[in-house]
Design a protein around this nucleic acid. Structure first.
Length: 126
RNA sequence: ACUGUUCGCCGGGGUGUCGCCUCAGUCCUCACGGAUUGGGGAGGAAAGUCCGGACAACAAAGAGCGCUGCACCGCCUAACCGACGGGGUCCGUGUUAAAGCGGAUACAGAAAGUGCCACAGAAAAUAACCGCUUCGUGUAAACGGAGUAAGGGUGAAAAUGUGAGGUAAAAGCUCACGGUUCGGCAUAGUAAUAUGUCGGGCGGGUAAACCUUGCGGGUUGAAAGGUCAAAUAAAUCCUGAUUCCGGUUUCGAUCCGGAAGUGGUGUUGCUCGCAUCGCCAUCGGGACGGGUUGACCGACAGAUUCAGAUGGCAACAUCUGAACCAGAUAAAUGACGACCCUACCGGAAUUUAUUCCGGGAAACAGAAUCCGGCUUACGAGCGGACAGUUCAU
RNA sequence: GGCCUCGUAGUUCAAUGGAUAGAACGAGAGUUUCCUAAACUCCAAAUACAGGUUCGAUUCCUGUCGAGGCUA
């Protein structure tokens, strides 16, 4: 299966749900900070990428705003996920995005930040 | 006409590409699952969690005390601290005065008892400082006794108001007209209550101070509760724990039945009561610990929604017909279109409710078991009421 | 999801329904000193918000807003 033909979907099974794996990522995962995001990730052995998206209740009091940001970030991940499949081959990760800024973003700024994040992961991991 | 306050209505619709959740059908797969077609996919407040229910668990749901809620009347409802209708009181407007109109209202009891009422004032509740009257002493000034609550000043509040009689001076001490409150009777009303009349009382306020009266509330909440799967953990420490009677039997042990006692645990804060386990080598309870953090049910067809008819002033009820309308769980309902239409706004025209041109959806905000309310947040507008300003008649 | 507690100066705490809402630390100004520190003096600063009960609310009641905690 070539990366280009993989549909840009994001099913239930491609999200992190278990408290255990989240704890594991916070403990042992690699992490970096890129302007609006804090990213925690680790390489996955099985050929599936899992993702989770977090927004702090302290920064955004209203549930509407938190929902909107999570949707924007999830949309961006869904569209730009295929960039992880480099020339060397596909990379599969377990990843958490934490939105740390205090103001509401637009879709374009989220896309830009997502591009940078993915490039960073590609450059650091072999 | 504009501005403000308040109440009610409304809180957009379709389409393209990519994507998410769910239900049903078909196909593939041993199965998990996948593919495809079709249906559905946030709100008036989903919010706050302030009331009331449904539902569930607690062998107990039983009683008493405690705690706590409500408080004019009727009615609606599954129920309510809710809604509807009515009454009283207060405020505004209005008026000679009313009526009317609008708004507010935790609106039982202060004559059951207790407490509190700062400062000021004589006194804040068995009133007496100045004053008034009178008697005694005294030349007089004044002092002392008795009576009184008219007047004065203080204060948020000072003992029912006005007038007359009465008296040494006075006082509901007496009388008339009022005010207020309790009771009886009559009339109107289902009732609260209103009007009239008769009789009694009137020495304050505060019950969102304790309290009294009446009517309620068993406790805990879906992390309730149930099923399945997976996983495991024993040990240690602390603590508690019996007697009798009858039957069986030759007697004892054992066993069966009963009674009382005692201890642990549970049952709402306490007591009683109740339930359950034990009373001799094993159990009960606790402490310290260990494992799991999955799936399904609960959980979405209901006090449901829409339309019509009938009854009722209304809230609402009954009947008939039609519809199926979110079900997520680190939590779906999204992203991108200079798109289209509409509510509506601005301008122009005339046929005065239509046409043409331009603009064209804003805010508060995201279901978490489900309903009925309440409260709070909010806007492009529309309609009603009230207040203010200006213009015209 | 459910339950509970608390909001007082810049900070940490007091205050029986009745004083000009008090204390400590801190901030500011001054005295002292050649300058600073220390010390002393002075001064400003608050009841979360909105209603109600009361003659009078930090206190009592109701509703909002905010903060913290507990619960599988």
């Amino acid at each position: 299966m070539t990366p280009q033909l993989q549909p840009a979907t994001l099913k239930k099974a491609e999200r992190i749900k278990s408290l255990k794996t989240i704890d594991e990522l916070f403990k042992n995962g690699s992490s970096f900070f890129l302007t609006p995001f804090k990213v925690l990730y680790s390489l996955n052995t099985s050929p599936v990428s899992n993702a989770a998206f977090m927004v702090s209740k302290r920064n955004f009091k209203n549930a509407t705003d938190r929902n909107r940001i999570k949707r924007l970030v999830r949309e961006s991940w869904r569209i730009n996920r295929h960039l992880l499949h480099t020339v060397k081959g596909p990379i599969y990760v377990q990843i958490i995005f934490i939105y740390t800024s205090h103001n509401l973003p637009g879709q374009d700024t989220v896309h830009l930040a997502m591009h940078k994040c993915i490039q960073k992961i590609c450059s650091t991991e072999p």
